[in-house]
């Protein structure tokens, strides 16, 4: 699997899949994301099936705060871009820059999660709780699963950042950072659909 031209003190151009182990991880993670697609599709389907089942409780159109969600979306999209920058820095071999961009990504992730918690807090104040109606349960489950993914992603990336804060880029940690960034993008992919299907269609359709 190795690229031929690297000697002992430089890394090959794509360090994340230069070793068999790295390539295995890369494939396995993509397949895992394929499975995650089905996981979130099941949650989306459930939400779409139940979104009108409000049982007299608050409806989507009554409570959703589009502006807040728009801000959240922008934050998460930006964090996706910063993790792209991190991976470009890695490909250039600039490990320090990569760490910085990853920390920025984490910071944006925390901001997003904070706003999401605040958003839930507001909706609960409006009388939509997890147990109010089928709509409430399905909404909090779908968005909560996404939030849990964000939280897990933050924990994962922070663990990596602390562990490798001064190790330099190696063939062992390059795949780890690359997978974490793929995971982060995937969270963003899911959010794009949540933004559209849950919030925009909740208000507009």
């Amino acid at each position: 699997m190795g690229h031929a031209q690297h000697n002992t003190d430089t890394l090959p151009p794509n360090p994340e899949k230069a070793t068999l182990e790295g390539r295995n991880k890369f494939l396995a993670f993509w397949f895992f994301l394929g499975g995650e697609t089905v996981l979130f599709a099941s949650l989306f389907g459930t939400y779409l099936g139940l979104r009108n089942g409000t049982a007299g409780g608050p409806t989507a159109a009554e409570i959703f705060d589009l502006f807040l969600v728009f801000i959240m979306t922008t934050i998460l999209l930006t964090s996706s871009l910063t993790s792209v920058f991190a991976m470009l820095a890695m490909k250039k071999g600039n490990f320090k820059q990569m760490l910085v961009w990853m920390w920025v990504t984490v910071g944006l992730g925390v901001a997003f999660l904070g706003l999401e918690i605040y958003e839930f807090y507001v909706y609960v104040g409006y009388g939509l709780t997890f147990t109010t109606s089928a709509f409430g349960s399905a909404f909090y489950t779908l968005v909560g699963f996404h939030g849990a993914h964000v939280a897990f992603g933050i924990g994962w990336i922070v663990t990596l950042l602390i562990r490798y804060r001064k190790s330099g880029l190696t063939l062992t940690n390059a795949p780890k950072f690359y997978l974490a960034s793929l995971y982060w993008h995937f969270i963003d992919v899911v959010w794009v659909f949540i933004f559209t299907v849950v919030y925009l269609m909740g208000i507009g359709g």
Binding site: T46, L50, G53, A55, F130, T132, A134
Partner: peptide, 10 residues
Amino acid sequence: ANYFIVEAGG
């Protein structure tokens, strides 16, 4: 939660 409870919209 109420996904499957008909009277709660499930």
